[in-house]
Design a protein around this nucleic acid. Sequence first.
DNA 1: ATAGGGTTAG
Length: 827
Amino acid sequence: MASLPFNTIPINLPFSVSTKPSSKHHDDQALNPSSSSYFHRVSSLCKNGEIKEALSLVTEMDFRNLRIGPEIYGEILQGCVYERDLCTGKQIHARILKNGDFYAKNEYIETKLVIFYAKCDALEIAEVLFTKLRVRNVFSWAAIIGVKCRIGLCEGALMGFVEMLENEIFPDNFVVPNVCKACGALQWSRFGRGVHGYVVKAGLEDSVFVASSLADMYGKCGVLDDARKVFDEIPERNVVAWNALMVGYVQNGMNEEAIRLFSDMRKEGVEPTRVTVSTCLSASANMGGIEEGKQSHAIAIVNGLELDNILGTSLLNFYCKVGLIEYAEMVFDRMVDKDVVTWNLIISGYVQQGLVEDAIYMCQLMRLENLKYDCVTLATLMSAAARTQNLKFGKEVQCYCIRHSFESDIVLASTVMDMYAKCGSIVDAKKVFDSTVEKDLILWNTLHAAYAESGLSGEALRLFYGMQLEGVPPNVITWNLIILSLLRNGEVNEAKEMFLQMQSSGISPNLISWTTMMNGMVQNGCSEEAILFLRRMQESGLRPNAFSITVALSASANLASLHIGRSIHGYIIRNLQHSFSVSIETSLVDMYAKCGDINKAEKVFGSKLYSELPLYNAMISAYALYGNLKEAIALYRSLEGVGLKPDNITITNVLSACNHAGDINQAFEIFTDMVSKHSTKPCLEHYGLMVDLLASAGETDKALRLIEEMPYKPDARMIQSLVASCNKQHKTELVDYLSKQLLESEPENSGNYVTIANAYAVEGSWDEVVKMREIMKAKGLKKKPGCSWIQIKGEEEGVHVFVANDKTHIRINEIQRILALLLYDMC
DNA sequence: ATAGGGTTAG
């Protein structure tokens, strides 16, 4: 055996190496029978994980001058591999080196050392030893590929696979799974296919290990058809194979397929594991499948699966996502070793339910358990601030983030921006955006969302072109947001143009793109076009979901087209039977009422699946529309019996029913009931309806007294009612008073100008309407999102008129008077 | 070989 000097051993090994060659193992100790009994004792200690004891036996052997063969060192190293005991292994390595080349240059020992370091994730040492190997066999290759794969150096692992083949060392059923894993992580499906070819050639495809990892690889690459094919051809499928395919389905959004696979698996009598149940729970959570998730939970219990952290958090995630917070609390209480993930889930569960107080309380408890907030906790709290529009709380959380150096977390930056945007502070959102160094597409989109929400289409467009100049290509979401910002700002034609541009840039509109267009059309008074967009979406092969159907129903209602409304109802019955929701039922009632078929509205209401307030509100509103005061009141009175408490909308609807019928007494009864029975404060709109009622009955003084009593500033609508009433009675000094009120309350409120313009529109004075628009422009005021425009036919192009409220009738000279006051105020 | 939490669009 060639002798090499010891100092060629890499000096970066983390222990010192004796340079003195030892000689005692040359004694003829091999004949000593106790040597083999030592081997057995060492071997059994190692298998029980008692490495330290095994090591002291070796020391004892050394002391008694017994021959220590390579197999003993091999055994101890293997023990260190089982225990992932890097420290003890290094000591063994030191002894091996101390004992000289007989051991240090033994192929078995050298390979074992590589395997040991690799298994302990000490890649650098393993690689140094590996490069020094004179003989590289399948085992050492497998170890190196394995460690690279584990620590995420996937390209390196795949290069190793190629190099192995070049050196004619053939990867076996231990190497291939790791190679597959690397392909999956990199989503290199073409490389994966090559590996699959090798597997077939090498005859490895019958190994469950190989086949399940191939199925997993195809799943991770999104090629589910091939994953399924591989899976179907496995001769003896084990639970891991089932799990791998199921995970593939879930990761690609095919949740229903995953659940179906689970039931097939149970039919074949394969026992589910915690992984199976976790995966099913993810699928159930994603698709909102309450029954599926509950059954998965039941199966976990029946099969006696241990509630470990991962299964527990899967359950928590599921119950939180579907809104069953009580069940989530039960699971949470039963979990023993709660970690940050566990706490984050229950906290986010509370936030999703709007229970921000509970969320904050849980945060305090979490701190008492000595757990620190991580970026997920903070992102959740930030989203709570955004939901509740609590700017102060949001800033506190942001300060915490800054103090604890979480600024570099890009997800957190997105939530901070979203919080500022939701709290109406776009400038601060932009500041956060600018100060974030590494921007990802989501961050860009978050700012787009902020602009879209407020209809700042100019800013949005600048951002849109800016990002492309910086080489960030917009995705569907970006395009949808740009379109939304245009629509929110009333720029219908520009939005349609953008919609076309998106398609010519190679991005096809998704469900949300189409629905955004539809909804935007409805909001901008183009309901016919909304229906056209619905048809075109269906032609493109996309199926409308519950929300798009709701929008289509409101378009039908606006068009008062029973024909279209019925056809959409038909579509719901044919295709959305299972996703019947409160909002769909509500929209149906509303549609039938507005299309003139109150009987059908009653019929839909009568066969409702849900018993929720919005549905009752819609029906009461329908009765109000038809002036059926008795029915409206009866329905309102019946709420208590079904355990529902009327809200502001209910009262508004009942009061407007009274309004239509001109029944002041009934209205007053409802109005006072509200405070005494339901202890709710009337809102501005309720006062408005009462004022309206009194004013149109000529009770101007009473109306005025009510205005002075109420805890709100009067709005333009109220003033209008009064103006109309005053007009009849020629009380001009009152009009002066009211106009002043209007100016004092909100001179910058575009709504006031809109109201006045509305009145002009009703009177047919288009010149005055145009003038109002110009004043708004000069003041830099923009129409609020959701406020409708209508194009006046036969008028000069570009002239828009606000949709007039049905009951607005103001004498033209009074309008001029108010306008004069407004202009005076501006100068 | 397989499994858990937070961010953007109607």
